[in-house]
Simulated scan of single mutants.
Amino acid sequence: MNPSPAIRKIFQGVASRQQMFRMFDRHAQRPNRWEGDASPLYAGEWFEMGEAEHDYMFEILPPLWIRGSMFAMREFLTGSVTSVFFALRFDGVIRHFHGYCDLSDRETVERMRVAIIERESRPVRPMTREERLEHIWSITADDYRGYAGDRWDEAARGKRTIMLYGGAAGSTLKLLNDLTDDEIAAKLPVQLRQLPSPIAA
């Protein structure tokens, strides 16, 4: 089931507390939620949060471990995947991040840390198509996103869907990965539509 377990940024900007909690389980609507291993859905996802949100999560429970400017949550989300929080310095400013790491892989936390640093270091790189799709999924309300069910072709079943507004034609569901560039732009917040993209570069 999608998305890929590769390390990936799922939200552009600094998440509010409400957005943070929504993204902690942004795959809650997946089919057969209580069956199978959901680790590939979550492992590798990361986003930025504020200092207050970072400190709030630190104080909820005693961490599983603390390593320098990183700590891991004691409660696991699924399998061996848990939340790891990072405080990283960029241009003299400390920024805070959350990532889901599969602790069965001893190198996963360091790979996540390096990936965040590479992605957020200057010069600022444009959002990729994949990052735009993940941001759209993260900000879309549950009523307007879901997963392809039995009415879809067998090859599409289980893949993520998004509601599109077609004006007089009414609303339609479309696979997230099949959105056109124009549909992606329409779904993004106005301030992100102006960011440089690989398409426009």
Rank of each mutant, 00 (worst) to 15 (best):
residue 49 M to K: 01
residue 149 G to V: 00
residue 201 A to W: 11
residue 7 I to W: 02
residue 31 P to Q: 08
residue 104 S to F: 06
residue 9 K to R: 15
residue 170 G to C: 12
residue 166 G to V: 06
residue 179 L to D: 05
residue 90 F to C: 05
residue 22 R to T: 10
residue 63 P to M: 02
residue 60 I to R: 12
residue 14 V to H: 03
residue 67 R to S: 12
residue 116 I to A: 01
residue 70 M to A: 08
residue 131 E to S: 07
residue 136 I to P: 01
residue 22 R to N: 14
residue 63 P to N: 01
residue 78 T to A: 08
residue 122 R to H: 12
residue 43 A to R: 12
residue 50 G to W: 01
residue 154 E to D: 13
residue 195 L to Q: 15
residue 86 F to C: 01
residue 83 S to Y: 03
residue 104 S to R: 14
residue 75 E to I: 10
residue 120 E to N: 04
residue 133 L to D: 02
residue 149 G to A: 05
residue 71 F to P: 03
residue 63 P to F: 02
residue 180 T to P: 04
residue 168 A to F: 12
residue 80 S to L: 06
residue 160 R to F: 06
residue 41 L to Q: 07
residue 127 M to N: 13
residue 14 V to W: 00
residue 3 P to M: 03
residue 115 A to P: 08
residue 80 S to P: 04
residue 185 A to S: 14
residue 110 E to V: 09
residue 156 A to P: 00
residue 113 R to G: 04
residue 43 A to C: 11
residue 65 W to G: 03
residue 120 E to A: 08
residue 157 R to M: 04
residue 118 E to Y: 08
residue 117 I to P: 03
residue 69 S to C: 04
residue 79 G to C: 07
residue 50 G to Y: 00
residue 196 P to V: 08
residue 60 I to G: 00
residue 53 E to Q: 10
residue 144 Y to A: 08
residue 62 P to L: 07
residue 93 V to I: 13
residue 2 N to S: 13
residue 24 F to D: 13
residue 55 D to T: 06
residue 139 I to H: 01
residue 149 G to C: 02
residue 67 R to N: 12
residue 71 F to W: 10
residue 88 L to K: 04
residue 117 I to M: 15
residue 90 F to V: 06
residue 83 S to M: 09
residue 92 G to W: 02
residue 95 R to D: 06
residue 108 T to P: 00
residue 19 Q to M: 14
residue 47 F to Q: 03
residue 122 R to A: 15
residue 172 T to N: 11
residue 119 R to C: 06
residue 16 S to D: 13
residue 14 V to R: 10
residue 168 A to Y: 11
residue 154 E to Y: 09
residue 195 L to A: 11
residue 125 R to K: 15
residue 80 S to K: 09
residue 112 M to L: 15
residue 163 M to P: 01
residue 199 I to L: 15
residue 189 P to W: 11
residue 123 P to A: 07
residue 85 F to I: 06
residue 8 R to F: 08
residue 166 G to N: 14
residue 143 D to M: 05
residue 89 R to Q: 13
residue 144 Y to R: 10
residue 74 R to W: 02
residue 105 D to R: 14
residue 182 D to W: 09
residue 74 R to A: 11
residue 35 E to F: 13
residue 23 M to A: 03
residue 63 P to K: 01
residue 154 E to K: 14
residue 141 A to T: 07
residue 93 V to A: 05
residue 23 M to L: 15
residue 53 E to N: 11
residue 142 D to A: 10
residue 9 K to I: 05
residue 104 S to T: 11
residue 49 M to F: 02
residue 113 R to H: 13
residue 199 I to H: 14
residue 50 G to C: 05
residue 159 K to W: 07
residue 130 E to N: 11
residue 15 A to E: 04
residue 174 K to R: 15
residue 36 G to Q: 10
residue 135 H to Q: 07
residue 80 S to R: 11
residue 16 S to A: 09
residue 63 P to G: 01
residue 100 Y to T: 03
residue 183 E to R: 09
residue 78 T to S: 09
residue 147 Y to G: 01
residue 4 S to T: 14
residue 34 W to G: 13
residue 46 W to E: 02
residue 33 R to E: 12
residue 53 E to G: 07
residue 159 K to Y: 07
residue 92 G to H: 11
residue 128 T to Y: 05
residue 37 D to E: 05
residue 188 L to R: 04
residue 194 Q to T: 15
residue 97 F to I: 03
residue 77 L to A: 06
residue 30 R to E: 11
residue 60 I to Q: 12
residue 23 M to W: 00
residue 81 V to Y: 05
